[in-house]
Design a protein around this nucleic acid. Structure first.
Length: 192
DNA sequence: CCACGGTGGTAGA
DNA sequence: TCTACCACCGTGG
């Protein structure tokens, strides 16, 4: 469906509900979780340009795989022009975190050459317009705490779990026993 | 477990 | 501008 700003919003059906994908002339520019209280503008696929339809097919395919804990495969071009330079550098780095790997906010800050901007990195992750496919859920707080997630912590937990990443329970055991099944969190190799 | 200070980027007034 | 947010992090009780 065509929106006033010249972009399209299409439904992405999945086993976890219907996502919403937004496309600009440059590519996929947004992805909303199911039930996100946002304008759900559905439309007849008839008037959607072939280019966008092709992108959308890739999105559907990629999302299905990602939600299943697999590598998403080919992605449509991502339009992140909505973000600031800082945010884009964070998102760019996110894209290099492999499946099942994680980084801490601190490590990510260091990776973009701004080691003290730890908190700001959190903000940039929260502003990620294309969650799941741009894997902001693979960023954890120090000491393997879950951290936050704009789409709801349940989603972050679910996504990580499907990638076999273990996270420290929110309510960490105060008892001396560290029953934590805290399995290894691998480090990602990054490229600038 | 909790409190606190130091951080950098953003949005809004 | 100035200010008040924050998906943080380390230190110190």
């Amino acid at each position: 469906m065509k929106a006033n700003n010249g972009s399209y919003t299409l439904l992405v059906p999945s086993a976890d509900g219907d996502f919403l994908a937004h496309y600009s002339v440059h590519g996929l520019c947004g992805l909303d979780f199911p039930n996100s209280a946002k304008p759900s503008a559905k439309g007849a696929p008839g008037e959607v340009p072939a280019q966008v339809r092709r992108w959308h097919e890739q999105t559907c395919q990629a999302l299905a795989r990602a939600l299943a804990g697999q590598t998403p495969g080919t992605l449509p071009p991502l339009d992140t022009s909505g973000g600031t330079e800082f945010q884009r550098s964070v998102w760019r780095t996110l894209a290099h975190i492999g499946l099942g790997s994680t980084l801490t906010y601190g490590q990510l800050a260091a990776a973009i050459g701004n080691p003290k901007a730890v908190r700001a990195v959190g903000g940039a992750c929260g502003a990620n317009p294309i969650p799941v496919l741009v894997p902001c859920h693979r960023v954890l707080a120090a000491d393997r705490k879950i951290g936050g997630f704009s789409g709801g912590l349940e989603w972050k937990e679910r996504l990580l779990q499907r990638e076999r990443v273990c996270v420290r329970p929110v309510r960490a055991a105060s008892r001396g026993r560290d029953a934590g099944p805290v399995r290894r969190v691998s480090r990602a190799s990054l490229a600038a």
